[in-house]
């Protein structure tokens, strides 16, 4: 399996390229910006993007959806509760992020669903709190945490639809219950290091005391 953490744009967003080298298929999680570079990374590894998966509907994570979809024909996947956000980003926000409006979702998912390319399958965990339809994507060994959990920090809950109670509950019941060695792959490079583990966050994340 190919799993690349790639920092893009001005907001230190981590996009993830996850692909199966045997079948040449891949998904891009949060192609937030620098789409040309992301697709170059995929091409370099002989990967064809089949899916664009958004961990949530905020503009800084979806800003590359339009270009990415145009270039690859990949389908856009997002949780059903954040799907409306794809097409309702205010124009002032789009300008601020130099972003094109995202096409609507092709496929909506909910908790318990599975997203698969080639031999890779990720479980969808619905983890509301940062947004109502935020998700984490889990496969034994690693979890993509979007803006739910960062390295020694957590997502903001002061945006519309945010809730600290929901966020804390999501993290406590869905993430910290995973095996301690599970690698945490966050949606922004906001920590001292770009990735962490569930065990480390349990012990050192000051927001989860």
């Amino acid at each position: 399996m190919i799993l690349e953490q790639i920092q893009v744009g001005h907001m230190a967003v981590f996009a993830y390229l996850i692909g199966d080298e045997q079948t040449g298929e891949a998904m891009l999680v949060d192609p937030a910006a620098d789409v040309g570079r992301l697709l170059g990374e995929a091409r370099k590894r002989g990967l064809q993007i089949r899916l664009i998966v958004n961990t949530h509907g905020h503009v800084d994570h979806i800003a590359g959806n339009a270009d990415c979809r145009k270039e690859t024909g990949a389908k856009i996947v997002i949780h059903e509760l954040d799907a409306d956000m794809l097409t309702s980003t205010p124009s002032v926000m789009l300008r601020m992020f130099n972003a094109k409006a995202s096409p609507p979702a092709d496929i909506t998912v909910r908790d318990g669903d599975t997203v698969a390319v080639g031999g890779i399958s990720l479980q969808v965990f619905h983890t509301p709190g940062h947004t109502p339809g935020g998700v984490c994507l889990y496969s034994p060994g690693f979890v993509l945490t979007g803006d739910t959990l960062f390295v020694e920090s957590v997502g903001r809950t002061d945006f519309p639809g945010g809730s600290w109670e929901a966020l804390r509950n999501s993290i406590m019941t869905r993430l910290l219950t995973l095996p301690e060695e599970t690698v945490v792959l966050p949606g922004h490079n906001y920590g001292r290091v770009p990735r962490s583990t569930i065990g480390h966050e349990k012990r050192h994340n000051p927001f989860l005391r």
């Binding site: 089949r50 899916l51 092709d106 496929i107 669903d113 698969a116």
Partner: peptide, 16 residues
């Protein structure tokens, strides 16, 4: 068995 066929949506490639 590499894929647990759980109740719910299953997206394979780009087909739901």
């Amino acid at each position: 068995v590499g894929l647990d066929l759980e109740e719910g949506k299953l997206v394979i490639g780009d087909e739901p």
